[in-house]
Design a protein around this nucleic acid. Structure first.
Lengths: 330, 330
DNA sequence: ATGAAAGCGCTAACAT
DNA sequence: ATGTTAGCGCTTTCAT
């Protein structure tokens, strides 16, 4: 009716007289009328809301900077285009697409997809557009767009840089809780492959899945004299290890080189500043959201896979293995 | 109908035969049926979703740790109780309650409310339960619950501590963009009041609203020889000032003491570690969310105001004003 | 145990 | 320029 036109601007060919319009407005004001978007959504078959699914979102105490940038990229882009963003509770038990794909979202950004086949299946069973963020694209991509960074290339740069400085054996550290995240696996494999290509020693035991890495680091350090550099799955791990290393008297970078991943602002705060593989997190998140909304608004659009190149931000936690402490001299 | 019962568990006195149920399930599977929560919401007059409104959410580049903790507290609690969380685009232009109070949320957490009377009015005009988080409670509280920390007491502790060490004149630094946030004003006033109570000099020009504080700090430092300590509105500002101070050769804490606010993990990362007023951000956020959901589920419940006490986490950026550089000796 | 009806609040389309 | 109708997908209530 006319009210819809006056109050919500709907109705193409509805004309309303000036005094009628005014009456409507006054009545609405008096009654404390609020348009109901739920009804609008039901009617219009769209919600102008996108869902964000996050594996391990609530894992740490105080989200790492990485998550902040990710969210910021998503929120900024979504808001600019008039979409709200809902962060979902269906974290790990999200195997059931019904929990997500139930009409409340026009599309979904799925972050850090785990390698559980159920989850992968759920992802491609979705009836709404979806984009997987920070998830390496699979071979058959189905109805989903992928935005990720060149994890393997990033790790390769780090390893080559370390190897070039004389490191002979390099470890990889990840949060034990993230072992199922595809990204983790790809980075880990990247390290193994690069070591192999460069002719460096590499043992399965050099892939370190730590729960409380501060705790486990000390033990590991005492037990493993020949690893002189650690590449970490995130800046936060790297920072945690750095702190603990210093506390037990390890001289970073000379006793041990440390490389983070993401190269967030966090890396500038530590002393010494953290060398890290860089990925344009916020930009990637923004692009993913763009792609999603584009496809929401034009469903015929094809899905795509975008891989952003990584860089290596060399700061102060990497150096040739100079220390004699571990019996290695450049 | 029977389908509703079988698939969504609704319908109190609906009985369905076993073979019929099975047939329904099979059909649903084949058709790729998904229940539509929007329709459920419309019907049930609830959405199981709470909105989070954030002034200045997307302000910085990489949200401060404070925001992370806040979100984590909200998300965790909401998820535990079966609610989704939507972060809203209506940041600053949120004066219009229609934008929020339009049926899509069962309740709202409104963070860091600004002192604009329009916003305050919008807040209390809401037709749904709301809780203001990190917002000092007003005298007449209307239909809104308030959860905040004892900003004034926190600042008081910091100032008393500094004064006790011999500081005679203490500045307060805040982000210029946050001048309208009530919290900012209360903290600022707390500093002024405490200085007065202690008989310390205090000028309006000691309240420093900086845009690019790294930039403005250097200028200020050169021009203002008699301030020996800065209390900051956030850890991030404090960290920014610390970094810049060190870069231009200021010896923290001896030339200048710095106190942050929040005492997030960030404070442990800087060198030297930041002294800061502590507030239990995550706990406060969780409690706010609790209160909100309680009131959603039982609307007769009264609104309350909860004020958490602050602490002072003394770390390494505060000391007596020892430096002779500024002509002050303890 | 199953079927039918009504309505949550809204809006596109057609009728006046 | 204004009224009417129908239906988005669901669930509560009442009738079979």
């Amino acid at each position: 009716m006319a009210a819809s036109k006056v109050l919500n601007g709907r109705g193409e060919n509805v004309r309303v007289g000036a005094e009628a319009a005014e009456a409507i407005r006054r009545a609405a004001e008096e009654l404390g009328y609020r348009p109901n978007v739920i009804a609008q959504s039901l009617r219009g078959m769209k919600t102008d809301t996108i869902g964000v699914l996050f594996e391990h979102f609530v894992a740490g105490h105080g989200m790492p900077d990485y998550t902040s940038l990710l969210l910021e990229g998503i929120l900024q882009t979504a808001f600019d285009r008039g979409y709200s963003v809902t962060v979902c509770p269906q974290m790990s038990r999200s195997e059931d697409p019904r929990q997500i794909d139930n009409g409340r979202f026009d599309g979904v950004v799925w972050c850090k997809v785990v390698s559980d086949p159920k989850v992968i299946a759920a992802l491609s069973d979705l009836h709404i557009p979806a984009v997987a963020l920070n998830t390496p694209p699979p071979h058959e991509k189905g109805n989903v767009s992928y935005v990720s960074c060149d994890n393997e290339g990033g790790i390769r740069q780090a390893v080559e840089y370390l190897a070039g400085m004389g490191h002979k054996r390099i470890g990889f550290v990840y949060e034990r809780s993230c072992i199922d995240v595809l990204e983790t696996r790809v980075r880990m494999q990247g390290l193994v492959d690069t070591c192999q290509d460069l002719g460096l020693e590499s043992h399965p035991s050099d892939l370190l899945g730590w729960g409380d890495f501060a705790e486990e680091f000390a033990e590991w350090w005492a037990a493993t004299p020949d690893i002189t550099a650690l590449v970490c799955r995130s800046d936060r791990i790297a920072g945690g290890i750095l702190e603990r290393a210093q506390r037990i008297g390890v001289n970073v970078p000379y006793d041990l080189s440390i490389v983070g991943f993401d190269s967030s602002q966090y890396c500038e705060l530590t002393k010494p500043r953290l060398t890290a593989v860089y990925q344009p997190v916020e930009q990637m998140a923004a692009r993913a959201t763009q792609l999603l909304i584009d496809r929401i608004q034009n469903p015929t659009q094809e899905t795509v896979s975008i891989v952003y190149p990584c860089g290596l931000d060399i700061r102060d936690t990497t150096a040739p293995p100079l220390s004699q402490r571990r019996g290695i001299i450049l």
